[in-house]
Structures are given as C-alpha cells and as structure tokens.
Design a protein around this nucleic acid. Structure first.
Length: 424
RNA sequence: GUGGUUGUAGUUCAAUCGGUAGAGCACUGGAUUGUGGUUCCAGGCGUUGGGGGUUCAAGUCCCCUCAUCCACCCCA
C-alpha cells in the first residue's frame, strides 16, 4: 500500500485490464478517419511556449494559468502541449503541407496537459483525438467535420449525445458584437460577479457563458451573436446548417456557445453528453480562419475538432457498450515433470511459429495448479504432456470450454492450428 | 485558485463513549499424490496516506501535509 513514489496528481495509469478499451476507441477513430480520408499526423508533446501563448490567446485560462511551462538547459521556453490544433498548424506551415492545393485533412491523438484541478472527466494529463481540415472556407467542409464527429460517436455505438452549433463570426463582426455586449452589460456592471467584471474588458463574449445565476439572468436578454454577423458570416452559417440538414444531422443552434480558445472564427460546435456531470463536453471544435496566418503561414482557412477519450469511455460505460475484448491465449501449455517441461519449451516455440498464441506458467508444477491457471487465463485449449505422453510421442489437447480431450502425435501438431480455427 | 468529501489488508468495507485492528471477495496451499470453474478446510504482524500534538492509552480527538472524489472555475 505504501509507495515511495506515487503517480502525479491528476494523472492515471492505463492498466492492462482497461487498455483494450483505449485501443477500441482509437481503432474506431482511425477507421472513421479512413472513411473521410483523413491522414494521421504526430507532433511532439512539447512545443515552444509562445506557439500556444499567441494562438490560443494570452488572456485565455489555458495559457494564463493552466500551461505546464519549463525552460530547457539553454533557457528556451517550452510548454507541454495543452491542445492539439496549434502544433498541427505549426507543422502544416513548417512543412508546407498545403503545397498540393487540395484540402489538407489531418487527424491526431495523444496526451495533452493542463494544470487544472482534477475532477470527474478532467485530468492534468488527458488524451485527445482530433481532426483538422486546412485549406478551405467552404461551409460544406464545416458540415463534413461535424459529420466526421457524428459518425465517429455513432460508430462507437453512443446514443446519448446532442449537437449544438453557433457562429462566432469573423474578427470584424466580433468587434461590433463586443461593443454591443459592453453597451448591454455596462448598466449592470455592479451586479456582475468579479470574474465577469474582468471579462468585460478582455473578452466580453465570455460573459454569456458565466454559470453564476445572477449573471445568467442578466445575460439572458443580451444581444445574440447571430444578429451581429455580417453578410458573409451569416450566409456561411446558413450554408453550414443547410449541409447539415442535407446530411440528416440533428443539431440545435445555441447562440451562447463560446469557445475558450481565441483562434476560433465563424462556426463553433459542441457535442454534449448531459449525463456526464459537470464536464459534459464530449467533443468541441470550430473554424479558425486566422490561425494559419497568425502562426506564420499564408492566409489559410481551417476547421476542426478535438475530444477527450476519458469522457468517451465514461459515456461508453454509462451506455453499457462493449468496448472490444482483452486478448486471450488460444492455448495454455501444461507440463508434468522436468522432461516434459523441456519438451514443452520446444513445442511451445514450434506452435508460436505457427501463429498460435500460447502461454504457460513455468513456476507452477502440480496438475491442479496449472489447470486452475489455465482456467483463469481464459485459454480456449490446454495442452498437457507428462512422462506417459513423452514415451508415446504424443500430447493431450483439451478443449477447456467443453471439457473433452484427444491425443495428437508430436509429428502431427500441424493439425492443432486447424482445430483452433474451427473452434473459434 | 476556492469550497466540500473521503483516505484502514491486493480489493470492497467493519471497528460502539478513545481501550488487544476484523470480515466478504480475491490470492496461495490442501481434500488417497495426472485434469479447471462448484463445495469444504487451512493461511492475515496491515508503517490504519504521511508528519506532529493531546492522553496512561489514538484508526478514533486537535494541527499540518499529501492524495481521492464531487462541485465552483475551465474545457475536451
């Protein structure tokens, strides 16, 4: 119980009995990516700190108080990545991935790091999966990215989720809207919570998102972003909805969705699961038309999403969906006596070379303890050899589910593969 | 960063007013010595998360600390 070195706060080990669930989720994600023709990109776990400071926004909470920052031996400032989009865009720019002229479709997954207070569905090291479609401002692409997310969740078997969308406009509409919000909220300034008072100056849109009741009741009648969209942004939003309708994807417009990262423009969306507790956002994303240029590339539009695997697993558990299976051996090899054990070593190697998954417990000696171990391993068959079998040059193959067994000559072990395949 | 909650065996949990730390499950071995899952029997000295204090005596009371879980906040 007492351990000298314990795991850091807000992190966790993925233990052998649950790792297969992760594999199942990631495999489903990769299959969905194939369906939409997105290709994998892998970027480092740390980047220069200012990549995030500039793109995610230096007033955002993520940058302001949640980044794991450190200096290397030469004093360079780095940060453990708190999110996946900025690094992908950095790589896109650095490797000129837009060279073909086609839309660049990328997917990624891996650990992200944020110094948050741990909570249900929230960790300091957490695993995100996400996609980015870079190089088009066509509203169909927004809809396709949303369709990707929807397909993925459906492929996992999930049902208890819903989609909310909004448009936060471009930088020009945002300016107008921010002014309108300030105008609306300033008569109520004294009634706002301390956080919202700060938000007024920096990012008035965040006032809409406040969970404090008194703020909510003030915000209830605040002007809607959608009313302040300019011509282009409004049609863009209408078109996204049009394509979603065509695809048969159900959504709700929620003009209160505000993304916490500064780079978002136009379309913003969230897939929510309201049975998850406070951390109910399963997956979130949107468009980021200014980001590529900001990071140093040519002006290039983009859209994408990211989600957390932990919350997916919570949802899967809640809906009691089977997430694949842990691997089980095909054969458990039992030996009785020294000579049999030596012969066993030889046979096990041969059987593995035939592609049979096989396991033995070399420390256990009695028939009983080995049979118990075989049972616990969930193996399909047991092979048993002892002195008697050795002298007859044969082995016992026992079906552990049915319980019957047959003799097989050593020279005929090729048959075993067929018997196993038939049994499956 | 702020609240609250919990921390006892591998695990889930007991332990009355402060008075010898205990059970289920799991695990290991055994039941005429070469056949599993059921049954029966046997096997527990654990820094009671860690440190300090009060007391004749602390798992229990007090302080500090670490961690868990939940919520705020934030977001995926």
């Amino acid at each position: 119980m007492s351990v000298n070195y314990s795991i850091p706060r807000g992190t966790y080990d993925i233990l052998p009995e649950t790792s297969y669930k992760w594999q199942y989720v990631l495999k489903t994600f990769q299959e969905t990516a194939k369906l939409f023709n997105f290709k994998e990109i892998v970027t480092p776990i740390f980047e220069k700190a200012d990549l995030f400071e500039r793109s995610v926004g230096d007033t955002s909470d993520i940058v302001e108080k949640e980044m794991y920052k450190f200096n290397d031996k030469k004093g360079r400032k780095f940060a453990l990545r708190p999110e996946g989009t900025a690094p992908v865009i950095r790589s896109f720019v650095e490797n000129n991935l837009g060279f073909s002229g086609n839309l660049c479709r990328l997917f990624y997954s891996g650990p992200m790091f944020r110094y948050d207070r741990p909570q249900k569905g929230r960790y300091r090291q957490f695993y995100q999966y996400g996609i980015e479609a870079i190089g088009s401002n066509h509203p169909y692409i927004d809809a396709e990215v949303i369709a990707f997310a929807d397909t993925f969740l459906r492929n996992l078997g999930l049902k208890n989720y819903n989609l909310e969308i909004n448009s936060v406009g471009c930088s020009i509409c945002t300016q107008d809207y921010d002014l309108a919000l300030k105008e609306y909220f300033s008569p109520h300034f004294d009634e706002l919570c301390p956080d919202c008072k700060k938000r007024m100056g920096k990012n008035p849109k965040r006032l809409l998102d406040c969970k404090v009741k008194s703020c909510q009741s003030i915000a209830k009648n605040a002007p809607s972003m959608i009313a302040y969209l300019d011509e282009d942004c409004r049609t863009h939003f209408e078109q996204v909805k049009f394509y979603l309708d065509k695809m048969g994807i159900v959504y709700k417009v929620n003009d209160r969705i505000v993304r916490g990262l500064d780079y978002y423009t136009n379309t913003a969306f969230e897939f929510l699961n309201n049975n998850l507790g406070a951390q109910n956002a399963l997956l979130g994303g949107g468009r980021y038309n200014g980001l590529v240029k900001q990071i140093g590339g040519k002006e290039t539009p983009g859209v994408g999403f990211a989600g957390g695997i932990e919350r997916l697993l919570l949802s899967l558990e809640q809906e009691e969906l089977f997430c694949g299976k842990n691997s089980i051996p095909e054969i458990f090899f039992i030996t009785l006596g020294k000579n049999a054990q030596i012969k066993g070593v030889e046979l096990i190697a041969k059987l593995r070379n035939m592609g049979i998954s096989i396991v033995t417990e070399i420390e256990k000696e009695s028939m009983k303890s080995q049979m118990k171990a075989a049972n616990k391993s969930n193996a399909l068959f047991a092979i048993i050899i002892g002195e008697e079998e050795l002298s007859n040059n044969e082995l016992v193959l026992k079906d552990l589910q049915v319980g019957n067994q047959k003799m097989i000559a050593f020279k005929d072990i090729g048959e075993i593969k067929e018997i196993i395949d038939k049994a499956k």
